Computed example of a mutant assay.
Amino acid sequence: MNTLSGQIEQLLHIIEVSIILAGFAAMVATFQSRKVESITRGHVVSLAMIVYISLFSALLAAFSLSLLNFHIEAGYVWSTSSSLMGIATTGFIVYLWKKRHFKFVSIIMRFTYYALFGIASFVVIISTLNAAGIFFEREFGPYFLSYICNLFFVGFAFARLLMRPLWKSVDIKEKNRTQTERGKARR
């Protein structure tokens, strides 16, 4: 969308989606923590990722809208916002890299996490290029792409948060079935 009004509408939708995801994640975490005997570090990191990225995305989109309301040239707004998005994404990468614990994660999930770190690094590069006016001309597209990537990460973490109790239930049932089969085999 090349019109400023269309870009503003997209930013408003990003704010709405970001706040909704953060709210739903908080509700899911609240209800899950009542049923779970122990909360793991992974639960907390996933929830923190959802909340931090979602709320920062909403805040940055609102900041961009605020700049536009002061009649600042759109190219300058996208450049400034892209640089802030690059800084924020770098901060999220560092935070999650420090919090990651791959000891208890399958090889597939480990590969998935490395791929997500790679995509996030690519977002930082695109944001930096857009902010500097290199290859991109301080435009809305790369800035919007960074939101899409961030919302993808949040959606991934949200899906994992939703599915954890189900997988834990399946694991417990399989463990009980395996123990029952071993007991029968010993007899």
Rank of each mutant, 00 (worst) to 15 (best):
I8R: 13
N69F: 06
F117K: 08
M163T: 07
S106L: 07
H71D: 15
V45N: 05
F122G: 11
I19P: 00
F156D: 08
N2A: 12
Y114T: 09
H71N: 14
R164T: 07
I125V: 12
F63E: 08
S146I: 03
E174I: 09
S18Y: 02
H101Y: 06
K98T: 11
G75T: 10
I119Q: 03
F135N: 04
A29F: 13
G155V: 01
F111H: 07
A157M: 12
L161W: 05
G75H: 14
T128K: 00
T180W: 09
A88I: 12
I20F: 11
E16S: 09
S54V: 11
R41H: 15
I20N: 05
F102W: 06
E174Y: 10
K103D: 12
K35H: 01
A157N: 12
L84C: 07
F24W: 08
E137V: 10
S127M: 11
I119S: 09
N130S: 08
I8A: 05
G23A: 07
L60V: 04
H13E: 08
T180Y: 10
K99S: 14
C149A: 15
N69Q: 11
F111D: 06
T30F: 10
A131C: 03
Q10E: 12
F156H: 09
G118T: 10
V28E: 01
S18T: 06
E16N: 04
M27P: 00
A157W: 07
A61R: 07
F70R: 05
E137I: 08
A29E: 03
M49T: 15
G183K: 13
Y95L: 15
F136E: 04
N2C: 05
M163A: 13
S54L: 08
K103G: 13
A159E: 03
S106D: 14
F117E: 12
I119L: 15
Y113N: 11
R110G: 15
F31D: 03
I148Y: 04
T40K: 02
F152N: 11
L11A: 03
A120P: 01
W167D: 00
F152M: 13
Q10G: 00
G23M: 08
S81R: 01
V170P: 00
K168S: 02
M85Y: 01
A159Q: 03
T30Q: 04
E174K: 13
L67D: 05
